[in-house]
Design a protein around this nucleic acid. Structure first.
Length: 277
DNA sequence: AACCAGGGTGATG
DNA sequence: CATCACCATGGT
């Protein structure tokens, strides 16, 4: 969003003219992040890492409420504000199926989330639905996350905190058989056996192999973690919907010029073909 | 009441 | 390698 200017006001940070390249509901509630919710007045609030934020669309602008220049860089990174989504949309619109998807909804961004949280939430996403995933994640945070000052919400629990738990202690989050996988991930990370910081430095295919070692992490979940947690925007998680989309619309794969951004294109295609069914 | 949910695992051909 | 039952839970 290189062409969008940022204005710091006492109430928060204005992203001037950003609304068209930042569809709030579709970006925050399309199944890539699970800690955002829309309030009755249309604003959105949520937690990333250990930071709380409220944001709203105001005409053509997006406003990040209650923050200043000190924490803005964190959210700029989280919302991938450094990427020129307007230019990306132009590129995507050269491809007819993708153009149809963007006519239906444009401005879906891929968030840059924290790897550990992303790994956990997508372990929990297996054979599950978004409303229930959100409930499980919220109970997990309420149970073992650090409090966030001036809010009722809590940060995502650390691997060390979760690694100390037994399956029985985790039962209240009602994740079913996924709890066992969550604990395996926590133990590996806490023990240094799975080094997410090191994975971030590896080529995508090697990082993929590292993630696949965790129980409950297969190809699809691993690619979600790479896309949403490691910023590997070329990754396309192949869930049931994307398998249909690829088989019907791209039997020979994505056009070469789209492949570097396959994960971002995927998010728009996923939303469209899943919504119109 | 039966079926589904952004899957993965382990056991079978 | 391809297929398949099974996994816990909640929503429709």
């Amino acid at each position: 969003m290189a062409e969008v200017s940022t204005v710091f006001a006492p109430e928060g940070v204005h992203l001037v003219g950003a609304a068209r390249q930042f569809a709030l509901p579709e970006t925050l509630d399309c199944g890539q992040a699970f800690r955002w919710r829309m309030l009755a007045d249309g604003r959105w609030e949520g937690v990333a890492g250990s930071r709380f934020l409220t944001l709203e669309r105001r005409g053509e602008d997006i406003v990040l409420l209650g923050i200043g220049a000190d924490v803005f860089p964190f959210w700029a990174d989280y919302f991938d504000l450094g990427r020129d989504y307007a230019a990306l949309e132009q590129l995507f619109r050269r491809n007819p199926p993708l153009r149809r998807a963007m006519d239906f909804c444009s401005g879906i961004r891929v968030l840059r989330q924290e790897p550990w949280e992303t790994l956990c939430t997508f372990i929990l996403s297996a054979n599950n639905n978004i409303p229930r995933i959100k409930g499980i994640v919220e109970r997990l945070c309420q149970g073992w996350g650090e409090t966030i000052p001036k809010t009722a919400l809590r940060a995502f629990p650390t691997p060390e905190r979760l690694a100390a738990l037994s399956p029985g202690e985790l039962a209240p989050i009602r994740a079913g058989w996924r709890s066992e996988y969550l604990l395996d991930a926590a133990r590996r990370v806490a023990a240094g056996q799975l080094d997410l910081l090191a994975l971030a430095q590896l080529p995508t295919e090697e990082a993929l192999a590292g993630l696949l070692e965790v129980k409950g992490v297969g190809e699809k979940v691993a690619r979600c973690v790479l896309l949403f947690g490691f910023g590997r925007v070329e990754c396309i998680p192949m869930d049931v919907w994307m398998k249909r989309v690829m088989a019907e619309l791209y039997p020979r794969g994505l056009p070469r010029y789209l492949r570097p951004y396959g994960g971002i294109a995927q998010q728009t295609l996923f939303h469209y073909y899943r919504t119109i069914r």
